[in-house]
């Protein structure tokens, strides 16, 4: 088994001399990566199950029934020309989503009303109680893993070295954006600027924000720390932020997968499974 002291050393079984294997990902990084991957999968689908119980998002402390403070609604309705449609209403704008959201064709061929259809939820049928159990189970693992990752990454230097951008990273940003735009990737042990900024945003902002907004929705936690819901703009705003951050994390996932495919999926997968990464020749002297 490799240890952290092997970092950036050349592997004894290095392949072609011009493209050496470097030890890129710490054990803690690899382990937490896959735990999160599983957690986020279940959190997303059970979260959409929970959303289906009341498919609307609001701004403020409460949900407007006698006034309108909704920013998003997913539902079904009958149009003036007597068609049943599914829709997503974002602020004032309404988009028809029949077949996808709000109103869709079920397994039995019958049209059904539900915000997110069965393929997007756990369980596939409407079951808020089970959705909540799955959600809170993985929420605990997710949060504990985040804490463990933070401690490990401070200790092993991952945070300082790979996540927090340094001044020279910021200076390299325009060049890095241009390189990404042309899909030119530099294969090295070091993270490039956009990677650092993205991972910093996901790991240090979005993921903690997900936990904070989740806690702010708990009436129990609310009694312990009412300030949390207050600084987030009220319980219903916290719920809206929770949903918005979910969309950002899904967006991150899509870009992440595209980047892995573009940069070389075998090499990328090897580094996040075994830790070893085949780097470009010049990266041996650093980036």
């Amino acid at each position: 088994m490799t240890t952290d002291t092997d970092a950036s050393m050349e592997s004894p079984q290095a392949g072609p001399a011009e493209r050496p294997l470097v030890y890129k990902q710490f054990f803690a990084t690899r382990l937490t990566h896959w735990v999160w991957a599983a957690c986020l999968f279940f959190l997303l689908l059970s979260g959409l199950q929970i959303f289906n119980a009341h498919p609307a998002l609001y701004i403020g402390d409460q949900s407007g029934f006698a006034f309108d403070n909704a920013v998003l609604r997913i539902g079904a309705e009958r149009t003036e020309d007597a068609r049943n449609i599914g829709y997503i209403q974002l602020f004032g704008a309404k988009f028809e989503t029949t077949g996808w959201f709000g109103f869709y064709r079920g397994d039995n061929g019958m049209m059904q009303q539900r915000a997110f259809p069965p393929w997007a939820t756990i369980p596939s049928y409407y079951d808020l109680a089970s959705g909540r159990i799955v959600h809170f189970f993985f929420a605990w693992i997710f949060a504990i893993t985040l804490l463990a990752w933070l401690v490990a990454s401070i200790v092993n230097g991952h945070l300082r070295r790979d996540i927090l951008p340094r001044w020279r990273d910021i200076c390299a940003l325009p060049r890095d954006i241009a390189a990404h735009a042309r899909l030119r990737f530099h294969h090295s042990r070091d993270y490039n600027t956009l990677q650092k900024l993205t991972y910093a945003a996901v790991l240090l902002v979005l993921m903690p924000l997900m936990i904070a907004t989740g806690l702010a929705m708990s009436p129990g936690f609310n009694a312990a720390a009412p300030w949390l819901a207050d600084i987030l703009g009220g319980r219903q705003t916290a719920r809206t932020i929770h949903f918005a951050v979910m969309l950002l994390l899904v967006g991150f996932f899509v870009v992440h997968i595209v980047m892995v495919l573009a940069a070389g999926p075998i090499n990328e997968l090897r580094s996040i499974v075994t830790g070893w990464y085949r780097a470009d020749p010049e990266s041996r002297e650093g980036n």
Binding site: S63, M217, Q236
Partner: peptide, 8 residues
């Protein structure tokens, strides 16, 4: 706070 997600 309702288990469904709304508040009043």
């Amino acid at each position: 706070d309702c288990v469904e997600g709304w508040s009043c």
